[in-house]
Design a protein around this nucleic acid. Structure first.
Length: 590
RNA sequence: GCGCCCGUAGCUCAGUUGGAUAGAGCAUCAGAUUCCUAAUCUGGGGGCCACAGGUUCGAAUCCUGUCGGGCGCACCA
């Protein structure tokens, strides 16, 4: 096992270590001053492959410290680097880049590594088992999931997988906002549907209640459960029960919607339970102890005209300005109840109990509250004397388009496109793949358009099929080869030529790319990488159109065929591993 | 008025945490199918990286400002 690890390390991270050793040697030689800072020195594949396999900027970064010019220093570095067997050539380019070309054996070794590691290829220990809590979706439990929730759900889920793949211990958490006014509205809306189920004519749904038909089954279920016990009862008699029951059913609905996208959380945390356990009060006590909460008066809202009913009131305020917020924030309302922020603050303290690191995935419409919650976690870190890294990833809005026109969605009118609708429209078997890949082929912090026309009939132009097709082609080739009596074999890998090695080199980027994507918390990089890798594969495949000697199966050359099939197998494995992170199926045929 | 995000080809978007001549798909033009899946491939045209300064060996990337688009600016959730 450690052998294969060393092999994968060798190609990228491994060369960084080698360069480091060379620089240290140059320090001993007096070329570089002792302990010269090496910040900014990188070893990475150059953008333009014709420059070589790896490039380093070391000479340019360190020339000043060495009191020489970059190209001269580069010469000295190369002198030492060339001693390495794996280095086929090393040359100075441009202003002082050092371009390295590695021997074929290095890349063939990588192919062995993929084979040896299989599904684990690309995994890393970067996370060192750190416990990361990723909270995502957390949609209000008042209705089904709609397309507006989709992006955060997919990004959060893929990010979780990515972090797991990179050696973190991830908890996928959903915060159920079941304590605010909106769930009372839900309970009242459900009561109306309950009356309807009992045969009453309820007419139009009154303004301020949720009008959606999805509450009809809830009303029916409540009627079945309670009979007419609450038919003429006053609201205080049924509100608690109906709220609990309705929320429970909404959560079932939401879970099944999420399941359609292949998403399931490890932990559902209830705001109501948080309150029942007295967590906000404990948080307040702790914060007051640390002089982070005080009783004070809020300033009137600036900018636009202040609300007419605004008046100064003394409230318990959290000192979020101390941690970069624009204003201190109330944790309780004037009626003594907790604000949403007060509860959320306690909730983050709760999450931090069982995690080393917190990540929240929020919609852009919550951007305004990022500073205060970051302040809260900073305060917690400071108070506890241990840093709790905390990141809020804002996922920008998705503009749904149909026939070139924006689709308007309004929850209040009940006019919105649900995930379930979308899945039905796309087809249950492919919807998860299409939606996930589409959402992941752009960076989350930029607004995106989701065009139904393009995505629905996308069987041609959708990138997800392009990548899946590459995988399917590989599988079909392996099947066909098996039928003709050929099997993948690493016995004659030396027969692989330049074009094949190029494919290996691209696949070999995968571990490095996974780490980069994980540390940047950017799962979309995986999607783009897979697209490129698939493109390289398709291009290679088509060489076989004009040149039968470039096909995977060359009947008269069994050794070469075995080697090519081995290559195909490992490419397929790499694509499958990437798709697994994204939660997209690696299909066997199309 | 303030805060956050964004501005890259006609359109949709990448750009490896600051690297070399700025990339892909769609669209457009010209080609490839007696061949393991053409859901594929090859090539052409198309750019003031919104604009102006700054930082340095080097900027689409970092800083400041301007313009443009989005989201938000209760004791709501």
């Amino acid at each position: 096992m450690s052998d294969t690890e060393n092999i994968t390390q060798t190609v990228h991270a491994g060369f960084a270590a080698k360069l480091d050793a060379v620089l240290t040697a140059l320090e001993h030689d007096g070329v570089l001053p002792a302990d010269a800072p090496r910040k900014g020195v990188t070893v990475e594949p150059p953008r333009d492959p014709s420059h070589g396999d790896l490039a380093t900027n070391a000479a340019m970064v360190l020339a000043k410290q060495a009191k020489t010019n970059p190209r001269e220093l580069a010469g000295k570095i190369i002198e030492k680097l060339s001693a390495d067997d794996a280095v086929e050539s090393a040359e100075i380019a441009g202003p002082g880049f050092i371009n390295l070309r590695l021997g074929a054996s290095v890349w063939l070794g990588e192919l062995h590594a993929i084979a040896a590691m299989g599904e684990a290829y690309g995994q890393s220990t970067m996370g060192a088992g750190r416990r990361v809590n990723v909270e995502y979706v957390s949609a209000n439990p008042t209705g089904p999931m709609h397309m507006g929730h989709c992006r955060g759900a997919v990004v959060g889920d893929a990010l979780s997988s990515l972090l797991e793949f990179s050696g973190h211990k991830v908890t996928r958490e959903y915060y159920i906002n079941d304590a605010g006014g909106q769930v009372d509205v839900l309970a009242r809306s459900a009561h109306l549907r309950y009356l309807e189920a009992l045969g009453e004519d309820i007419g139009d749904i009154p303004e301020g209640l949720y009008p959606g038909d999805y509450l009809k089954p809830v009303g029916a279920a409540l009627a079945k459960l309670h009979g007419d016990a609450f038919k003429d009862a006053s609201e205080e008699d049924w509100l608690d029960t109906f709220r609990t029951d309705a929320v429970a059913q909404m959560m079932e609905l939401i879970k099944s919607d999420l399941h359609l996208l292949g998403i399931s959380h490890d932990l559902f945390s209830s705001e109501a339970v948080l309150h029942a356990k007295g967590k906000p009060a404990k948080a307040e006590a702790w914060l007051r102890e640390h002089d982070l909460v005080y009783d004070g008066v809020l300033e009137a809202p600036k900018g636009k005209a202040p609300p007419e009913d605004w008046e100064p009131v003394e409230l318990p305020l959290f000192r979020s300005t101390k941690f970069g917020d624009d204003q201190d924030r109330p944790i309780k309302k004037s009626d003594g109840k907790w604000t949403y922020f007060g509860a959320d603050l306690a909730y983050h303290m709760q999450k931090a109990e069982n995690a080393d690191e917190l990540i929240d995935i929020w919609g852009a419409d919550h951007a305004g509250t990022v500073k205060r919650i970051k302040a809260a976690v900073s305060a917690l870190s400071e108070g506890q004397g241990k840093a709790i890294p905390f990141d809020v990833k804002l996922v920008q809005m998705v503009q749904l388009m149909r026939d070139g026109e924006p689709v308007k969605m309004s929850k209040r009118s009940g006019n919105f496109i649900t995930i379930a609708d979308m899945v039905e429209e796309l087809g249950a078997d492919v919807a998860q793949n299409i939606i996930r890949f589409t959402m992941l082929t752009r960076k989350p912090e930029a607004q995106m358009e989701f065009d139904f026309a393009k995505v629905v009939e996308a069987s041609k132009d959708n990138p997800v099929f392009y990548v899946q097709y590459a995988h399917a082609r590989i599988q079909s080739t392996l099947r066909k080869a098996a039928a003709e009596g050929f099997a993948p074999s690493d016995a004659h890998l030396d027969q692989l030529g330049e074009e094949e090695l190029e494919l290996v080199k691209q696949a070999a980027q995968f571990p490095r790319l996974v780490e980069a994507a994980a540390s940047a918390r950017e799962p979309h990089r995986i999607a783009f990488y897979l697209y490129d890798l698939a493109g390289a594969f398709h291009a290679y495949w088509n060489l076989g159109n004009d040149r039968p000697d470039k096909r995977f199966i060359v009947a008269q050359s069994p050794d070469l065929t075995g080697a090519r099939l081995f290559l195909a197998l490992q490419l397929g494995q790499t694509i499958a591993n990437g798709l697994r992170i994204l939660g997209v199926e690696a299909v066997q045929e199309m």
